[in-house]
Amino acid sequence: MKLIITGGSGFIGTNLMEYYLSRQNDFEVINIDLFEPKIEGHKPFWKKLDIRNETELNKVFKDFNPSHVVHLAARTDLSGTTIKDYDSNTIGVSNLLQACEECQNIQKVLFTSSMLVCKLGYQPKHECDYNPSTIYGESKVFTETLVRNASLSYEWAILRPTSIWGPWFGEPYRNFFDLLIEKKYFHIGDRSCTKTYGFVDNVVYQINTILFAEKDDIDKKLFYLGDYNPYSLEDWANEVGDALGNKVHKLPFSVLTFLAKTGDFLKGFGISFPMTSFRLKNMTTDNIIDMKSTQKVAPNLPVSRKEGIAKTLDWISTN
């Protein structure tokens, strides 16, 4: 089986590349990414390429002739001001669709979207019930619409990662762990939220299972990626604190509101601060995702939350 992973230098992509490179007897895999891999051993399998470059993308696909594709490459930050800022999620996806269609060996493609096609806390009535609150979310609606409107000759599915954490992660959950390690994290009064989070090893398991599931189980369907049982931010923080031997204390919500406004002010001057109003709202808004469809296809998550915390702290200690 010949697999292309776009965005294999990113957070989920790095973990996915690590999984398939450990199984090279079964898979021939390459990573298409504009950025260098995070792991030195991944570099021989890296093709430096911007998916917005239609000519070069078509050439790599033609030369490698993949049977399977996992598309992760995207701009994912929230700082863009127009949809054009996210042309990797629009033009890039359009180019990818064309490149895949021209490969006769293609059997299945997984297109990664985002849960932010709906604002936090919104419960969509159906798969195409979109309600984004960010330009990034709008760009991922564009991604999904392109895929759904294309007449594709191969099996495909759309993936929406939830709040994913674990080795090789960045903001915001790397900050969450760093603050807990430095004893600078505080519970938000009595306003802890409950969300669908996901440890990255479980997400890799879900992607791999979906990628090789039977056609009737996955074709033209939507799957959220994450752990099946939602958990509160307070419980999670306490478990990380317990693993570190640190007790997590509470601050009044009013104090954190002040800190968030301070962060907003500093952000206007390009100064990074661990708390902003956007982050505070995110940390106090419930966002529970219905995971039944994914659980039906991939029922047995390999890593518990406590095991994930231990793995993550071990990775941080060496990075």
Rank of each mutant, 00 (worst) to 15 (best):
L72E: 02
K48N: 14
I32P: 00
K84F: 11
N65P: 00
C100I: 06
K84T: 11
S79Q: 07
N105Q: 14
K48T: 11
A99F: 13
D85R: 06
T112G: 05
N65T: 12
Q107F: 01
A74T: 04
K43A: 13
A99N: 04
I106D: 00
S94L: 13
I30Y: 10
G80H: 12
E56Q: 15
C103W: 05
N31I: 07
V60N: 08
E56K: 14
L72V: 04
S79F: 07
I91A: 08
N95L: 09
K38C: 02
I106S: 00
D33K: 01
F61H: 08
A74H: 01
G80C: 04
F45Y: 15
E101H: 14
E102Q: 13
K62I: 02
T76W: 06
G92Q: 13
T55P: 03
K47Q: 15
L116K: 01
H71V: 03
S113K: 10
P66Y: 05
M115A: 12
T90Q: 03
N31G: 06
I83H: 07
E102V: 01
W46T: 10
D77F: 07
R52N: 14
F61G: 09
S114K: 09
N65Q: 11
A99I: 04
N65L: 04
E36V: 10
K108R: 15
E54I: 04
V117N: 07
I51V: 13
V93I: 15
S88H: 12
T55R: 12
P66I: 04
L97I: 15
F45M: 03
F45L: 06
H68V: 04
A74L: 02
Q104M: 05
D63Q: 14
N95I: 08
E36A: 11
I51S: 03
D50S: 12
C100N: 13
R52F: 09
E56D: 14
D85L: 05
K119Y: 10
N53C: 11
R75A: 11
V70Q: 01
I51W: 11
V70C: 00
L57K: 07
G92F: 14
S113R: 12
E54Y: 13
I106C: 02
I32M: 06
I106K: 02
H71S: 10
D77Y: 05
N95R: 12
R75Y: 07
S88K: 01
I51C: 05
V109Y: 02
L120I: 11
E56R: 13
S67E: 15
T76I: 14
N89E: 10
N105T: 15
N58I: 03
K43P: 00
N65R: 11
D87L: 12
P44A: 13
H71Y: 05
L110N: 05
V93Y: 10
T76F: 09
I91P: 01
C118M: 04
N65A: 15
C100T: 11
N58E: 15
L110H: 09
I51T: 01
C103Y: 06
V117F: 11
Y86S: 09
V93Q: 08
F35T: 09
L97Y: 13
L97C: 02
